[in-house]
Computed example of a mutant assay.
Amino acid sequence: MAMQFDDDERAAVYRAIYERRDMRHFVRAPVDATVLSRLIAAAHHAPSVGFMQPWRVARITDPALRAALHDAVERERVRTADALGERHDEFMRLKVEGMLECGELLVMSLMDGRDQYVFGRRTMPEMDLASVACAIQNMWLAARAEGLGMGWVSLFDVDEVRALMRMPAGAKPVAILCLGHVEAFYPRPMLELEKWAERMPVHHCVFENYWPDEPESAKTPQEE
């Protein structure tokens, strides 16, 4: 049988999982280049369908490009607020990114030429996106272990960011990642602290064999 981690090693893995946070508040300080290399290597060791490795990571070092990406996110933030209707003002009070404060700004994208990869994608072409999400999660957990915060920004128009980044046809931005030092990690997810949403009980997400006749989301609080 394969050798399992010892107790301390196993505890460290679970600690990183449970203490990982989507960070929006950063301290203006540089990220050590060696640490950044380790985090990118962690992302690159993520699983990918058909071993296609569809992730592409761009480090944003041009201040003008960082500002332009921030402007694109801000425009989408306003459009998202308008689409939320009665929760508009509540949403606008939330801090949704730390793009101008974080030590490193990265753009994680899907590579071009993905259509040539059929293994595992013939019926589910979206598995390339799932693979990129795995790379992001690897980096997120490694960042937490390094004492760095990371935030995933998805509020942007894909075509606008694609143009700003001069991406080839077929490439697609997936996430703007804010990475850097933080004063403290949130004790719970920020959106939970801000009462935007709550973590649902795990039993709402797990069932055996067949999909339940009544979805958990349809139950009233009295049925819990």
Rank of each mutant, 00 (worst) to 15 (best):
Met1Ile: 11
Val13Asp: 01
Ala16Tyr: 06
Ala16Thr: 09
Ile17His: 06
Tyr18His: 07
Asp22Asn: 11
Arg24Asp: 00
Ala33Phe: 13
Thr34Val: 12
Val35Cys: 14
Leu39His: 03
Ala41Gln: 07
Pro47Gln: 01
Ser48Arg: 00
Trp55His: 00
Trp55Thr: 03
Thr61Ser: 09
Arg66Ser: 04
His70Leu: 10
Ala72Lys: 00
Ala72Met: 08
Val73Leu: 10
Arg77Ile: 02
Arg79Glu: 14
Ala83Trp: 14
Glu86Phe: 13
Arg87Leu: 13
His88Gln: 14
Phe91Gln: 02
Arg93Thr: 06
Gly98Asn: 08
Met99Glu: 12
Met99Tyr: 13
Glu104Trp: 03
Leu106Ile: 07
Val107Ala: 04
Arg114Ala: 15
Arg121Phe: 06
Thr123Tyr: 01
Ala135Arg: 10
Met139Pro: 09
Ala143Trp: 08
Ala145Leu: 13
Glu146His: 01
Gly147Ile: 06
Gly147Leu: 03
Met150Arg: 04
Trp152Phe: 00
Trp152Tyr: 04
Trp152Ala: 00
Val161Met: 09
Leu164Gln: 03
Met165Val: 10
Gly170Met: 06
Ile176Glu: 10
Cys178Thr: 12
Cys178Gln: 12
Gly180Ala: 05
Leu191Phe: 08
Glu194Asn: 06
Trp196Met: 07
Val202His: 00
His203Tyr: 05
Cys205Phe: 02
Glu208Met: 09
Glu208Pro: 04
Pro212Lys: 12
Asp213Gly: 13
Lys219Ala: 05
Glu224Pro: 02
